[in-house]
Simulated scan of single mutants.
Amino acid sequence: MTFEQYSSYFETIKITPLEEQEKPYDNPDYLDYTKLNWSRMNRWLKTGKITEELKNTLQQIYKPQHWIVITEPWCGDAAHITPFL
C-alpha cells in the first residue's frame, strides 16, 4: 500500500458512520483516535520540516531501499511519524 492509498483508507474510515465500520473502528474509542490522528497527520504534512542534518544524511544513501511500515490509522505514534517516512 502506498502512502496515498493509506491516506485514502484513513479518510474513508474517518468519514464512514460508526454503525457501518468494520473492527476495530466500530468501537467509538478507535474511531475517535482515528479522527484525532487524521488531524495530527495532516498538520505534520503541512508544517513538518526535515532538518538540514537529516537531509545531508539521507543524501549519503546510494542504494535503493524498500521500507515496510506496519501501522493502523488509530495509532497515535504513526500519525506523527508516517508523514516523514
Rank of each mutant, 00 (worst) to 15 (best):
M1F: 06
M1P: 09
F3N: 13
E4G: 01
S7D: 04
S7I: 01
S8D: 13
S8T: 11
S8R: 02
Y9P: 08
Y9K: 07
E11K: 11
E11Y: 13
I13V: 10
K14H: 13
I15S: 12
T16P: 03
T16D: 09
P17A: 00
L18F: 00
E19I: 02
E20G: 02
E20Y: 13
E20L: 13
Q21K: 06
Q21F: 02
Q21Y: 02
E22P: 01
K23L: 05
K23F: 02
P24Q: 05
P24T: 04
P24K: 04
D26V: 09
D26P: 01
D26I: 11
D26M: 03
N27R: 00
N27Q: 04
P28T: 03
P28E: 07
D29T: 15
Y30R: 05
Y30E: 00
Y30P: 09
Y30F: 08
L31E: 12
D32A: 12
T34C: 12
T34G: 12
T34F: 10
T34R: 11
K35A: 06
K35C: 04
K35S: 03
N37C: 12
N37W: 05
N37Q: 08
N37I: 03
W38G: 00
W38Q: 06
M41K: 07
R43H: 15
R43D: 15
W44E: 02
W44F: 03
W44I: 00
W44N: 01
L45P: 00
L45G: 03
L45K: 14
K46R: 08
T47E: 13
T47G: 05
G48Y: 06
K49H: 02
K49Q: 08
I50W: 11
T51M: 09
E52A: 12
K55R: 10
K55P: 08
K55V: 13
K55Q: 14
N56S: 11
T57V: 06
L58W: 09
L58H: 06
Q60Y: 07
I61N: 14
Y62L: 08
K63G: 08
K63S: 13
Q65A: 12
H66A: 05
H66V: 11
H66N: 10
W67H: 15
I68S: 10
I68V: 13
V69E: 13
V69R: 00
T71Q: 03
T71G: 02
T71C: 03
P73H: 01
P73N: 01
P73A: 03
W74C: 06
C75W: 01
D77A: 09
D77N: 08
A78D: 02
A78H: 05
A79T: 02
H80A: 13
I81S: 10
I81E: 09
I81R: 06
I81T: 10
T82N: 14
P83W: 04
P83A: 05
P83I: 14
F84A: 08
F84L: 12
L85D: 09
L85A: 09
